[in-house]
Amino acid sequence: MLSVVDLSKTFNPGSVNERLALSGVSLELEPGDVVTVIGGNGAGKSTLLNMVAGVFPPDEGKISIDGQRIEMFPEHVRASYIGRVFQDPMMGTAASMSIEENLAMALKRGGKRKLLRGIKRNDRDFFREKLSLLGLGLENRLTTRVGLLSGGQRQALTLLMATLVTPKLLLLDEHTAALDPNTGQKVLDLTEKIIANNNLTTLMVTHNMEDALRIGNRTIMMHDGNIILDISGSKRENTTIPDLLEMFRKASGREMANDRMLLAN
């Protein structure tokens, strides 16, 4: 489904700020794979997702989705395959526009935009139906400006927008990290529900080890721009959080010096 081959990226090459973010990463995803991605700060998790989404061009390597090479496509072209939810709840929605306008734009992902009315007659019923699945009462607030919603509400809306037109690939980058634990859990439950209902192929970055092992069918660990661990099936089922930490120590020769990751809330 998603195939990443020997992907490399160095930021600010040749300057004092030179940073190797990805060094020859390869990754194959089967259709329906839900892969959680863990790793310390600066490991390259976000960079991997950004490269797949087309935020930066790769230095080297190939990316394809369903056999279609996409690494030379700009971000807005790749958007027809990919749904994204960002870490920052402010990032995924347009604050000055209403809920229905945001959803109408999401409904056009991958389609051609024309001089037609942005919100059509039947759209509103469809939006209400989809919003009611979130269970946040947003279905009665179609014309509310998104800027007036809470971070959790905005993140749930972003999740709905990313999947309103079923994407081939869903990219989630610590999308619950900025929310309080309660709200984060709710958004995560919604995420699981939406992924399951649509059978979405997903890459989900998380710093919560418990979630990383519980959600999805496969877990990869990144360190210094490499994938240092890739577990699935029974091997994954028998892995515990202390195991993960031990694997990290062995593979990287370091302690997982990141207390964020130890907090399994």
Binding site: A53, A79, I82, R84, F86, G92
Partner: peptide, 8 residues
Amino acid sequence: QMIRSLGV
């Protein structure tokens, strides 16, 4: 960033 990720 948001509208680019929606294909614009």
